[in-house]
C-alpha cells in the first residue's frame, strides 16, 4: 500500500513544475476562486485548482439567462465575468495562497498581445503555479475561441505566451474543431507543457414561444455528462500523437469516469459541472481512484495513463 503514489508532475521550463498530490483538479469557471467550496471541504485535498478565467480588465459578463439545462448537461453563456487580473491578484489570490494546493490561472485575451501581457504579469506572482491559456471560450465576442479553432493563430498565441512566462503552460483546447489532434500537435510545437481537453461544445437553445434564441449571445457552451464520450474520444486520439501530458475533462461525474480518462491517456483530470450538483465530487473521485489503483495493482498515475491503448 505504501508504494501507491497519486502524485502528478507537469514539467515546465526553467525547472519550474506543476506538482499535484493527486490527479484531480477543479475546472476553470466551475469553482470560482475556491471560497465557496472551502465551506464544504479542505481545499488542501485537491490536486490543483484552476480558477475562473481572468482577463486584463474586469468583465461584467453576459446578460441573463446564462444557464440552460439540457439532457444530462448544461449550456452556459456566462461571458467570462471576472474581476480582471489586478482584482484577482489583490482580492482572490491571498485566500488561495493559504492552501498547499497549486493554483492554475486560466487566462483569456482579445488579442495575442493581451495573452502575452497576462503571462508576463503573472510570471512571478507568488501563489501562481501554472497558466492555462483559454483559447476556447465560446461566450465572448472577440478573441478567445477564434484563437482555438485556427492552427496558425493557435500557434502564435501559444508561442507568444510561452515567450512571456517560465510557468508551466497548459493550453485548454476547444473541441469545436475538425481535427483535435492537429490542434494539440500545434500547441505542443508552440511550446505548451500540457493540454487541457476539452472545453465546452458550442450549442444553442430556442424559446419556442418567443421564437428566438434563449441566450442573448445565441450560442453557449455545453458541458456535463452529455459530452463525456466525445471528450474521452478526443483524449484517446490526442494521446496517440502528442507527448506532453493531457489533463482530461468533460462531463466527469464520478471516479469511474475519471479512471476512464486516465486509461485513455490523461495524466490528470478536472471536475467541472459536477461541482454544481455535488460539491464533494472531487474528493469522492480522489478516494475512488485510490481504491481502484489498490484493487487493480497500479502503483502510480503514470503507469495507469494511457493503459487502455494497445502496446506500441
Amino acid at each position: 500500500m505504501n508504494e501507491l503514489s497519486m502524485e502528478v508532475r507537469i514539467q515546465g521550463q526553467n525547472r519550474r513544475a506543476l506538482i499535484m498530490k493527486n490527479p484531480v483538479m477543479t475546472a476553470s469557471g466551475t469553482f470560482g476562486f475556491g471560497k465557496e467550496y472551502a465551506a464544504f471541504y479542505d481545499l488542501n485535498k485537491l490536486g490543483a485548482i484552476a480558477v475562473k478565467g481572468i482577463t486584463l480588465e474586469p468583465r461584467e459578463g453576459n446578460p441573463p439567462p446564462r444557464i440552460i439545462e439540457t439532457p444530462s448537461g448544461i449550456l452556459n453563456s456566462i461571458g467570462l465575468q471576472n474581476p480582471g487580473i489586478e482584482g484577482f491578484v489583490r482580492n482572490e489570490l491571498p485566500f488561495l495562497r493559504t492552501f498547499n494546493t497549486p493554483v492554475i490561472v486560466n487566462i483569456s485575451g482579445n488579442t495575442i498581445a493581451e495573452y502575452a501581457l497576462l503571462a508576463e504579469k503573472l510570471d512571478t506572482v507568488e501563489g501562481v503555479s501554472a497558466l492555462e491559456i483559454n483559447v476556447s471560450c465560446p461566450n465572448v465576442k472577440e478573441g478567445c475561441l477564434a484563437f482555438g479553432i485556427n492552427k496558425e493563430s493557435l500557434f502564435n498565441v501559444v508561442k507568444k505566451t510561452r515567450e512571456n512566462t517560465t510557468l508551466p503552460l497548459i493550453v485548454k483546447l476547444s473541441p469545436n474543431v475538425t481535427d483535435i489532434v492537429e490542434m494539440a500537435e500545434t500547441a505542443e510545437q508552440a511550446g505548451a507543457d500540457a493540454i487541457s481537453l476539452v472545453n465546452t461544445f458550442l450549442g444553442t437553445a430556442i424559446d419556442i414561444y418567443k421564437k428566438k434564441p434563449i441566450f442573448a449571445n445565441i450560442v453557449g457552451g455545453l458541458s456535463g455528462p452529455a459530452i463525456k464520450p466525445i471528450a474521452l474520444r478526443m483524449v484517446w486520439e490526442v494521446y496517440e500523437k502528442v507527448n506532453i501530458p493531457i489533463i482530461g475533462m468533460g462531463g466527469i461525474t464520478d471516479w469511474k469516469d475519471a479512471v476512464e480518462f486516465i486509461l485513455a491517456g490523461a495524466s490528470a483530470l478536472a471536475v467541472g459541472t459536477a461541482n454544481f450538483i455535488n460539491p464533494n465530487t472531487p474528493l469522492e473521485i480522489i478516494d475512488g481512484i485510490q481504491s481502484y489503483m489498490a484493487a487493480e495493482g497500479f502503483k502510480n498515475i503514470e503507469e495507469m495513463t494511457g493503459y487502455a491503448h494497445p502496446p506500441a
Binding site: E36, G61, N62
Partner: peptide, 10 residues
C-alpha cells in the same frame, strides 16, 4: 451551483 461559484444566476 446555488452557492455563488458559477455566476449563472446574474
Amino acid at each position: 451551483c446555488g452557492i455563488g461559484a458559477c455566476l449563472g444566476c446574474a
